[in-house]
Amino acid sequence: MNALLEDGTIDQETAVEQFLRMDRLPHIWCPGCGIGTAMRSTIEALLEMNIPQEDLAVVSGIGCTARTAGYLKLDSFHTTHGRAIPFATGLKLANPKLNVFVFSGDGDLFAIGGNHLIHAARRNMDIKVICVNNFIYGMTGGQVGCTTPTHSKTSTSPYGNYEPPFNLPFLAAAAGAVYVARWTTYHVRQIKRSVQEAFSKRGFCFVEVISPCPTVYGSRNGFPTGLDMMKYFKANSQTLAGADPRDVGIELGGKIKVGKFVDAERPTFQNMLSEMWGDIGLQENRMVEAE
């Protein structure tokens, strides 16, 4: 727990504000959007963990969720579409002391960036990935994506989506993630706990946060406001801790299975490297020394 917060010197809001670039607010997100909720839960998780702020770095790609990097008062990198994970990989390998996490959207991480996600998971790269899944490309005005439930209407599936969506926890788990959880923005405490669990583990950890996008997804699919979607999340979420990730796919209007699905241990990329070469501390060792 943050010491100042604990001894009452500052209140919770002030503590949260210390993680925000207050000079960049208000944010760009629409009323009813869940990205801010996911960001707030993440901040609260980090606050309680008391990781020094300078030891955290956030990397994002492109899209609504990716704008989070610009609001967090950390070393923050808003990179190109889909490439947050390889950028984060380089950052983490160059400075292993950093707690590097990726905060980005479903289209960014699983469509254009899908290849990088599965390879980082396979390597068990020591980075944490928080994926806000709103079923849609929000920034560009609501096009169908790789997570859009079948039959959903979007601006590029006006007659209904005729493709099946990815099941993100199953994909992350199959690729080798050592921690996989899913919650909705209705589950703010659970998101916080999962983020803390992910940051407490070594290796590739994945947290999916299902979020309303009333503006361009909900409005076309029977959830005209953020509140409508939150009510749907509340009524239809089923917590199934330890469920087989293959069984947690999402259907339009169906149940949303949430919970922690994977919490495993296997050697990380960094473990494998130091097993062979000892502790490779690039920061200390990187410059050539005089003969």
């Binding site: 380089g90 160059a94 060792n285």
Partner: peptide
Amino acid sequence: PEVGGVFIQMEDEIASMSAILGGSWGGVKS
């Protein structure tokens, strides 16, 4: 590895270029 550095073979050249940008901001010539 002989000089305390890290080599990584990425999944493609897009990832390679992204990774060296990350490496550079991590403080290492990449």
